[in-house]
């Protein structure tokens, strides 16, 4: 069972994505902010990280940087961005993000993207 670290401050979105991924057979760890997420970036590492770019305390970009700084495991990162924040997505890609999905998004599309990333790693 692949372990997903989901970082999203909107509780309803977090819950919705969590339940969808759980239904798809993933183990999901949810964090409402970047500070808490950083605590989960220790061994055993998650298999994939999904993060919103706009987060309290620690931004999504910093999360991308922190995940990509992990030497022990190459963890794919998918970032959520809102429309009009394309420049931040570019920055995320420069930091090593593997994929992005624009809000509003379809849960099925998100699941496909997660599976694709996990398959390619």
């Amino acid at each position: 069972m692949s372990k997903v670290l989901l970082i999203e401050d909107d509780t309803l979105i977090q819950k919705t994505v969590h339940l969808k991924l759980k239904k798809e057979g993933f183990e999901v760890i949810c964090c409402p902010d970047g500070k808490e997420a950083i605590e989960h970036l220790v061994s055993p590492f998650p298999d994939i990280v999904l993060t919103d770019l706009m987060l309290p305390y620690i931004s999504g970009l910093e999360i991308v940087g922190a995940v990509k700084a992990i030497k022990e495991k190459d963890i794919p990162v998918i970032v959520f961005s809102s429309m009009g924040h394309e420049h931040v997505v570019e920055e995320a890609f420069q930091l090593g993000a593997d994929d992005y999905i624009t809000k509003p998004f379809s849960l099925s599309e998100l699941t496909i993207r997660i599976k694709k990333q996990l398959k390619s790693k």
């Binding site: 909107d10 979105i13 919705t16 969808k20 809000k103 509003p104 998004f105 379809s106 849960l107 599309e109």
Partner: peptide, 10 residues
């Protein structure tokens, strides 16, 4: 707010 972030069946 939730609907704004979702598409499709959700």
């Amino acid at each position: 707010n939730t609907k704004k972030n979702l598409l499709g069946q959700a």
